[in-house]
Computed example of a mutant assay.
Amino acid sequence: MGAAFFPVLFFTAFWACIGIGVPMMTPKGPHQSLLRCIMMLTAATCWLFWLCCYMAQMNPLLGPKLSRHAIYMIAKEWGNELKDG
């Protein structure tokens, strides 16, 4: 599975709108700049988390490849005798 252009573009635009649009709607007050900073950082970290999860699916980690001998040893230790067949 390779990276598709549309999902990356769509979610980048979505989180850009959140990161730019929501801070513009913060109420006036002494902490307005702090609230804007929080909203922009939240949008940026949510986008980055999504991007990392999306990219991790492109090259998934697979479990270890065990030899037949190792599988039989593990089964014997766990009390699940396997039959040769």
Score class of each variant (00 low, 15 high):
Lys83Glu: 09
Ser67Asp: 01
Ala4Ile: 07
Leu48Ala: 13
Ser67Asn: 03
Lys65Pro: 00
Met1Cys: 08
Met39Cys: 15
Thr26Asn: 05
Cys37Ser: 12
Pro64Ala: 04
Leu41Cys: 15
Trp78Asp: 11
Trp47His: 10
Trp50His: 06
Leu9Asp: 05
Tyr72Cys: 01
Thr12Gln: 10
Gly29Tyr: 01
Met39Glu: 12
Ile74Asn: 02
Glu77Gly: 05
Phe6Trp: 15
Met40Thr: 15
Cys52Trp: 12
Leu66Asn: 01
Leu48Asn: 08
Ala3Lys: 08
Thr42His: 05
Phe10Asp: 11
Gly19Trp: 02
Leu62Lys: 09
Arg36Tyr: 03
Met1Trp: 06
Pro60Cys: 03
Ala16Glu: 12
Phe11Tyr: 13
Met24His: 09
Thr26Leu: 10
His69Pro: 05
Ile20Lys: 07
Glu81Gln: 07
Met1Lys: 11
Trp78Leu: 08
Ala44Gln: 05
Leu82Phe: 01
Gln32Trp: 04
Phe14Asn: 04
Asn80Leu: 04
Phe11Pro: 00
Thr42Ala: 09
Phe5Leu: 14
Lys65Arg: 08
Gly79Asn: 00
Leu48Val: 08
Lys65Val: 04
Asn59Cys: 11
Trp50Ser: 03
Ala13Phe: 12
Ala43Gln: 00
Phe14Lys: 04
Tyr72Val: 01
Ser33Asp: 15
Ala70Gly: 05
Gln32Pro: 03
Ala13Thr: 10
Leu9His: 06
Glu81Thr: 12
Ala70Thr: 07
Leu62Thr: 10
Ala56Thr: 13
Phe14Trp: 11
Gly63His: 07
Pro23Thr: 00
Lys76Cys: 00
Ala43Glu: 00
Ile18Asn: 04
Asp84Ser: 15
Tyr54Met: 02
Ala4His: 09
Gln32Cys: 02
Leu35His: 06
Met40Ser: 15
Tyr72Lys: 00
Cys37Tyr: 12
His31Ser: 09
Ala75Cys: 00
Pro27Thr: 09
Arg36Gly: 02
Gly2Cys: 12
Met40Trp: 12
Trp78Ala: 14
Leu51Ser: 10
His69Gly: 09
Ile18Leu: 15
Cys37Gln: 13
Glu77Ala: 12
Met73Phe: 07
Cys52Lys: 13
Asn59Phe: 07
His69Gln: 13
Ser67Ala: 04
Met73Asp: 08
Ser33Tyr: 09
Lys28Leu: 10
Leu66Arg: 01
Cys52Val: 14
Ala44Arg: 01
Ala16Phe: 14
Ser67Lys: 01
Tyr72His: 02
Met55Phe: 14
Trp47Cys: 05
Leu82Pro: 00
Gly85Pro: 04
Cys37His: 11
Val22Ile: 15
Leu51Thr: 05
Pro7Glu: 05
Ala16Ser: 15
Leu9Pro: 06
Leu51Phe: 14
Arg68Pro: 00
Lys83Arg: 15
Trp47Gln: 07
Leu41Trp: 07
